[in-house]
């Protein structure tokens, strides 16, 4: 199966197999005007299987969100057909405005204008907790 090269845009590589569609939705790639290719379960010597997303247009990406969802992702920036930047995602210290605290006793459950914010408390097990009530975030 052949997906064409892109001239100017972004390639999200090394996405954990099966997570590509989640990332497509969270980054709202359906709202772009350009060509977007989601390749699922591509063969990878390193990962066995992986997902890849190719976006045929330059765009700003929230690396914290991406790092939270799948820290193994590599973001390649393409200009004039060449990779000009390769960035390895990592778990962000904070995730702001993306997740919602599910603790019914949390202050955010009644004061909904508060910014939802989570902090990384256990890097090894990728645990994030609500900064208000310490409730664990679930992906």
């Amino acid at each position: 199966m052949i997906i064409g090269q892109i001239k100017d845009g972004i390639v999200l590589d090394h996405i954990t197999a099966g997570r590509g569609m989640d990332i497509y939705k969270i980054l709202e790639l359906d709202k772009l005007d350009c060509t977007v290719a989601l390749i699922e379960r591509a063969v990878s010597p390193k990962m066995g299987r992986k997902d890849i997303i190719k976006i045929d247009q330059a765009m700003d990406i929230d690396f914290d969100v991406l790092g939270y969802i799948d820290p193994g992702i590599t973001v390649n920036t393409i200009r004039d057909g060449e990779v000009v930047e390769r960035r390895q995602m990592a778990l962000p210290e904070r995730v702001v405005g993306v997740l919602k605290c599910k603790n019914p006793r949390c202050i955010t459950s009644v004061e909904q204008e508060l910014t939802q914010e989570f902090k990384l408390t256990d890097r090894k097990n990728q645990v994030y907790r609500c900064i208000y009530c310490d409730h664990k975030a679930s992906k």
Binding site: R105, I107, Y132, C133
Partner: peptide, 27 residues
Amino acid sequence: RHPKEGAPVVAARKAGVPVINAGDGGH
């Protein structure tokens, strides 16, 4: 003191004076 967990975090960010948590829910 507030029945909702994390309410003192909100207070501490906005009060402009020191806030002591005197109990926030089961937290």
